[in-house]
Simulated scan of single mutants.
Amino acid sequence: MLTFGRGELCVFGRFRHIHLQVESWDLQKKEKTPSWTMEIKTQSESSDVNLPLVPGGYVALKPPIYHSLSPRLKAKSLALGAEHSILLTATGVVFTWGMGSHGQLGHGDLTSEEEPRAVEALWGMPMSSVASGGWHSVCISDGGDLYVWGWNERGQLGLPSRGLRKTAQQQQQNSSQQAGASCQEASTSSCEGLQEEQKHEEVFISIQAFPALLDVAPSCEIQTVSCGSRHTAAVTTVGDLYTWGWGDYGQLGHQTLASLDEPQRVEFFKTEQMRVVDVVCGTWNTFAAAVKEEVACT
Rank of each mutant, 00 (worst) to 15 (best):
F95I: 05
F95E: 02
F95R: 00
F95M: 07
G98W: 01
G98Y: 00
M99Y: 10
M99K: 09
G100V: 06
S101T: 10
H102V: 04
H102F: 07
G103R: 06
Q104S: 14
L105R: 14
L105G: 14
G106Y: 14
G106H: 14
G106R: 12
G106T: 14
H107C: 01
G108S: 12
G108W: 11
D109C: 13
L110P: 09
T111K: 15
T111Y: 15
T111C: 11
T111G: 14
S112V: 04
E113W: 07
E113R: 10
E114D: 14
E114G: 12
E115V: 11
E115F: 05
E115R: 05
P116E: 11
R117T: 15
R117M: 13
R117D: 05
R117Q: 15
A118M: 13
E120R: 11
E120I: 10
E120N: 09
E120Q: 11
A121Q: 08
A121Y: 08
L122G: 12
W123Q: 13
M125H: 13
M125W: 03
P126K: 10
M127A: 10
S128C: 07
S128D: 09
S128R: 06
S128T: 12
S129N: 09
S129W: 09
S129Y: 11
S129K: 07
S129E: 14
V130Q: 05
V130S: 01
V130I: 02
A131N: 04
A131S: 05
G133L: 06
G133N: 00
G133S: 04
G134K: 00
G134D: 00
H136W: 09
H136P: 04
S137V: 11
S137Q: 12
S137M: 10
S137I: 10
S137P: 08
S137W: 08
V138L: 11
V138Y: 08
C139S: 14
C139V: 06
C139F: 11
I140D: 12
S141Q: 06
D142W: 06
D142K: 13
D142F: 04
D142L: 06
G143E: 10
G143A: 08
G143M: 07
G144P: 05
D145M: 10
D145S: 15
L146K: 00
L146H: 00
L146V: 02
L146Y: 00
Y147V: 01
Y147T: 03
Y147A: 05
V148Q: 01
W149D: 00
W149P: 00
W149L: 01
G150P: 00
G150F: 04
G150E: 00
G150K: 01
G150M: 00
G150N: 05
G150Q: 05
W151Q: 08
W151F: 13
W151V: 05
N152K: 04
N152L: 02
N152A: 07
E153A: 15
E153V: 08
R154I: 02
R154D: 07
R154A: 03
G155S: 05
Q156V: 07
Q156K: 03
L157I: 07
L157C: 09
G158N: 02
P160L: 07
S161A: 13
S161T: 07
S161D: 04
S161E: 05
R162W: 12
G163I: 10
G163Q: 14
